[in-house]
Amino acid sequence: MIPAAWGRRLWLTCLVAPALLVLIGFVVVPIASAFLYSLYSWNGLARGEFSGLENFRVMLFVEPFAGWTWRALSHNLIVFASLMVVQNGTAFLVAFLLLKTLPGHRFHQVAIFLPVILSSVIVGAMWKLFLNPIFGLVNQGLAMVGLGTWAQPWLGQPSTALGSLVLVNTWHWLGFPALVFLAGMQRISREVMEAARLDGATDWQMMRHIVWPLVAPATTVVVILTFIGSMNWFEMPYVMTGLDGSPAGATDVLGLYFYRTAFGSATSGLQDFGRSSALAVMMFLVIAVIATVWTRVLRRREIQE
């Protein structure tokens, strides 16, 4: 009896151990060490004395750092809200159109998904050139069709910079939520759709009362991934508006602010591992807590529907 039970336990341990070791080594230890770092004051690059929650206090309540933290967080949230509407809203409509298998839908399916496989750095650099106020395709295109007065320094004005980044992000990622929604829609049974059609439902009614509720699992995935992606947003603003979140912090997000605080900016700032770790811990907590609660709420909606 005992040897058999032990054998089974040993067998299970062997199965679990490698994954557990990887998880501990690459997830638990870095998070724990970031938390540990955040509790010390840093003398330049060397760890100084234990300082409790001082780094958190500075990043949350001492100006100008607190102002920058809240500004960056608010930008992350604006990005999330805008992506939900612009990117995921469009993706839902696109998926619905693709579902209708209109002529050329295969081509469009590929065309919409294609940018997703490009690297964010390439997309960012390319669009940065397109949006250049002097040589850029966008302003020159506007001038060519007689809309020269609409030309703007898109990435140079606080009023347009973040919006431009959101649109570029949408161009880049649209295919992904569209594909997830499409997969969700294709799982809806044909009978339900045909019955609704026979009852004389319009496209809008179909979308509102049948498709939307039945793709709830896909929505959960898209919302949570968009939230995590928006909170961790880094490559696009880094490539397009720089580490400082130019102009004047109008495109600053938590990822950039963290990087600047941790590693300094070559031409302006210094390095502080303590404060940056505090910021990283807070980002982790916010993302983990909200994503967990939200997943539970959305899952409940899936069941109710």
């Binding site: 100008p64 750092f65 140079g156 004005q157 606080p158 130019s246 004047a248 031409t267 302006s268 700032g269």
Partner: peptide, 22 residues
């Protein structure tokens, strides 16, 4: 440029706002 917030960080953003008219 010895301590955070450095004068450079503050001035760079400030002059961007000044020249942008904000």
């Amino acid at each position: 440029r010895y301590q955070d917030p450095t004068g450079s960080t503050l001035l760079q953003a400030g002059v961007q706002r000044l020249m942008g008219g904000q």
